[in-house]
Computed example of a mutant assay.
Amino acid sequence: MSLKEHATRVAVLRVLRDAVDAEYQTERREVLEGLRAARAELNLKSVRVALPDDTPVATLTLVDPKPTVVVTDEEAFTAWVAENHPGEVETLVRVRPSWQRQFLARLTCLEPVADPYTGEAIPGLCVLSASEPRSFSLRPLPGGRERIARALHIGTLDLRRLLPLEGGEDP
């Protein structure tokens, strides 16, 4: 293949890549909204993806953020840690960040947030509710990628319908 042919392929592939990236982002947003709606209406978290001939190729699943414990009153929390875990307070009177991360990770996400050893409510902490899912995972089934490639190759999937390019004319 000549340099000119390689250069043409690069230009064409770049246009296709940009178009695919734009369509992919648009479709991801649509799928995420659809999955959120299905969760709200049907308590559905996953959906199986199939080719037009019903051959399964992947699974889409909402990724649920987990609720987390956060410090809402640094001063109250620091005072509590100084009293209950004095070795974990630095001389500048703050909780060591590494210990704080580990400690918060061990706490249950129930109000009031309590010391796991004494059951005492810990001042300065509250539970932050989990947000709406912001993403989903796509896991191809075994052989799914190959089935998609084969469907594209034999024409069962029409790339022109999946990826309409701006500026083209319909035949």
Score class of each variant (00 low, 15 high):
48 R>N: 12
91 T>A: 11
147 R>I: 06
3 L>P: 00
166 E>L: 10
7 A>E: 08
96 R>L: 08
35 L>C: 05
89 V>M: 03
61 T>V: 03
26 T>S: 15
29 R>K: 14
44 L>D: 01
68 T>I: 09
42 L>T: 13
49 V>N: 04
76 A>E: 13
95 V>E: 02
34 G>Q: 03
38 A>K: 03
81 V>F: 06
117 Y>V: 14
32 L>E: 03
7 A>M: 04
98 S>P: 00
66 K>Q: 15
159 L>V: 14
5 E>K: 09
151 A>S: 11
77 F>P: 05
1 M>D: 07
67 P>I: 06
126 C>N: 11
128 L>E: 11
152 L>T: 02
31 V>L: 08
48 R>C: 12
20 V>P: 00
125 L>D: 05
99 W>M: 01
125 L>M: 01
121 A>F: 02
14 R>Y: 11
79 A>D: 13
97 P>I: 15
31 V>T: 15
114 A>F: 09
69 V>T: 03
64 D>T: 07
82 A>H: 03
89 V>D: 06
83 E>L: 02
165 L>Y: 05
68 T>P: 09
94 R>S: 01
16 L>E: 09
29 R>G: 09
55 T>L: 00
124 G>A: 02
5 E>T: 13
11 A>Q: 13
56 P>V: 05
113 V>P: 08
55 T>R: 03
80 W>F: 12
130 A>S: 05
13 L>Y: 12
12 V>S: 00
8 T>R: 07
134 R>I: 11
163 L>C: 02
54 D>F: 14
114 A>Y: 11
40 A>V: 01
90 E>I: 07
80 W>H: 04
155 G>L: 04
118 T>G: 01
52 P>D: 11
59 T>N: 10
119 G>M: 14
91 T>Y: 11
66 K>T: 14
89 V>Q: 06
32 L>P: 15
104 L>T: 02
122 I>C: 00
19 A>M: 10
158 D>H: 12
134 R>T: 14
38 A>L: 10
37 A>T: 08
26 T>L: 09
55 T>S: 00
146 E>Y: 06
64 D>L: 12
113 V>I: 06
117 Y>M: 11
87 G>R: 12
145 R>N: 14
87 G>W: 06
42 L>Y: 13
19 A>T: 09
157 L>R: 03
91 T>Q: 05
102 Q>I: 10
158 D>M: 11
